[in-house]
Each structure stands twice: as structure tokens, then as C-alpha cells.
Write a protein that binds this DNA or RNA. Sequence first.
DNA 1: ACAAGTTTGATAAAAAGTTTAACAAGTTAC
DNA 2: GTAACTTGTTAAACTTTTTATCAAACTTGT
Lengths: 212, 212
Amino acid sequence: MYSKEKRKVSPSVIRRLPKYRRCLLELKNSGVQRISSRELSRITGLTASQIRQDLNNFGGFGQQGYGYNVEELFEEVGGILGLDKEYTVVMVGFGNLGQAVSNYLQNKEGFELSGIFDVNPSLIGSALCGLKVRDASELEEYLRGNEVDIGIIATDKGSAQSVADVLSAAGVKGIWNFAPLDLVVPENVMLENVHLSDSLYTLAYYISEHEK
Amino acid sequence: MYSKEKRKVSPSVIRRLPKYRRCLLELKNSGVQRISSRELSRITGLTASQIRQDLNNFGGFGQQGYGYNVEELFEEVGGILGLDKEYTVVMVGFGNLGQAVSNYLQNKEGFELSGIFDVNPSLIGSALCGLKVRDASELEEYLRGNEVDIGIIATDKGSAQSVADVLSAAGVKGIWNFAPLDLVVPENVMLENVHLSDSLYTLAYYISEHEK
DNA sequence: ACAAGTTTGATAAAAAGTTTAACAAGTTAC
DNA sequence: GTAACTTGTTAAACTTTTTATCAAACTTGT
């Protein structure tokens, strides 16, 4: 087994990977078997050169004179993104957003929701998404007994950091944070934020900027 | 009225503005009246130089020897983001995510949800978020009779582009898209995406990258 | 009113990141 | 076998982003 140099791949490239994958899935579903960077360029709006260079960060998946095999490349990109693995997930905070995201996860392969936690007594005990909602105070104990890869935080702002601390201490590998603040986590815990307010405000900025 | 040069401000700066605002709000709520870029640096983790330069893209809000007035700067940043205006919003797609986002908007000042649309017969007619859910086929007509600034798309992938077309044709200023695809919109319509899958996959990437 | 200390706004320099261009070498297809 | 095609790779160009610096302006305390 040869170990490839661990050069860091730029964030811009990483953020384009899901788009490539989405695009390849559509091609695959349409029965297309091969695709050239030129064609992909036409479809995605990116330059062919950029597409080739992006993919080459991870290896040479194409063949001169032929292009890329759609199905193979789709799998490769999935592998790069870590989607060939199975992740165990807990949801902390089961308000509207937590419920929506939990539901969303039900249809996602590779991400298995194993526990749901909330502080609201009227939610605790109810069975939703096929799981019983547990009291948030049981989170720490639950994590001791169950290996969890990803913790999702959909609590309010006030509780989020302490939840993040508990999750981090328990050894989760990543946190998907929906609470509107900047969490502090150990550097071995990967943090990905979905800041709805920031996104909406950015939109408001561009709207009002555009009107000038 | 003097018109400032319309130099384009970099995206990185724009994406930091909501963070500044969040931070300033906390300071304001804590009763802090003045703040220097040095202090802000300590709190946010950004460099003082960068903070000053970010703010100076929009004007000189500080005063030498003093720093910034917290409340004033908070308002200024809000103004830059366009949060001093009122936006009329419609939600298209009222599944789990649409409901969660609608609920989220209820507590947001400046964004008034005026219409909710879905195709699901079991939802249509029901009153949620204080509004009656309308049949999605009425969207076009509704937009003719009501001025709407922002359209939120929380439909499935298949319907999203046609909804975007209807919204764009009706003259909305911005689209907040939650559907997992890249919409094509006229350049006078601002588009902001919240791609949950992309975000989750990015997290998966960094988790599996980190394990190597 | 003054001097010492503070802090901004602005400019310039440096660094980092990203995109594009170009082409040799390998493949395909006829 | 040859013409057309397309990748992987390198290098260059470009853009963006960050950091450093300092004169000018203000505050504060005496």
C-alpha cells in the first residue's frame, strides 16, 4: 500500500467536489458512460482546465483520448469525500430545524442517526424519526456507551458551546453546527457550520448592494 | 447626496460582516459602549489590522484614540448588510425544511413572510405560521398581485428551477435556495444557496481526510 | 492648555490562493 | 497506420487576501 504525499488540497477544490458528484450522478442516471473535461466544462460552467486540475489533486482518473468513465469517476469522487464510509450521528436539539435535518438524514445513505436529544419535556419520550427523543442530560452517558462519529448541534445559542464540549470530549470526529455562533472545538474535531442568519444576511447585502 | 465609488468589496469581507454584527450585539447587550479594533481582535480571533480594513471598505466608523462606538457600529454594520430595510418573503415548498425555515423567519425582524406555497394537497389550506398554505399553482398569480422581495425555494430538486424561473420573471430581488442543485437565474436576481448535502459532504471529507 | 498615550484610516508590501494556458504523451477510432 | 482527441502536468499569470506600518487625530489626566 503506497501512501500518497499529504499535500493539502485547497478549500475551493473541496467545495467543488459535491458539485462534480451531483453532476456525475445525473449523467450516470441518464445512461452516459463517458465524459470529457470539455463536456463537463460545458455542463458546469467551469473551465476544462480547472476540472482536470481539480481531479488531479486526487489522482489520475481519466484516460487520454477517452476522457473519464462516468460511473467510476462518480465513485472516486464519493470516495474522496468519504462517502464510502458509514457515519453514526446524534442530533442534539430537536426543534423545528433539528427535526427537519433529522428527516433529511433519513434519506441519506452513509449517515445513520442513532440518537436524538432535547431539553424540552414535551418532546422527550416521543418517538420521531423512528427514535425516542432522549433527555439532553443523558447525552454524556449515551456517548460513553455508543461510538458516535458526528454530532449535530441544532440547539439554541446558549447551549451550543457546552454541547460541543461534551461531544468533543466524547471523541466525535466532526460537528455539524446549526447554532448561530462560532464554536470553539479542539483541532482534531472537524467543524462545519450552517449559519442560516449569515446566509440570509449575505443575501440581503447583495440585494441592497445591487440596488445602488 | 454624494455617491461613493462603487468598488466591489471582496466576498471574504462580506462573509465576516454577520460575525462582526453578532459580536457587536453581544457587546451591546453586555453594556459595553466602546471597543477598539485591538479588543475586537482578541474576541474574534481576527487581526486588528484586518478588522480595521474590513470596516474601512464601507467608511470610517471609528475615531482615533477612542475606537468604535459599539451601538453605532452595530447599526452601521446592519445598514451595510441591508438589515435596515423590510423584505417581503414567500416560501415555496413547505416540507420539513420549509417549515423549519418559516418558523425561523418568524423571529427575524426585517423579513416578513407573506405567502407559503406547496403542491401537497394535505398541506394546502392548513394554517401554519399564521398563514394559509396555498397551492403552488397559484404562485405566479400571487406574485402578480403582491410585491415580493425574496423567494425561498425549499422544494425538491425537480421543481426548483421552474420555481426559480417564476420568481425571477415576477421580479424578486433575491432567491434563497435550499434545493440541492445549482439554479440558473438572471444576473439581476441575487442567489444565495444553502446546500445541506454539500455542507455535510464537506464535513465528511475533512473527517476522513483527518484520519489519514 | 499641554503632553503622553491611544487608536484609527490609509497605503503599501507581502503572502497566499486560484485560475488559465500550453503541450507532451497516451488513446481511440477508423 | 494515421489523424483526431483528451488527459496529466508544469509553469505562468492573475486575483484575492492578509499583514505591516505610520502619520494624523483624538482622549485623558494633570
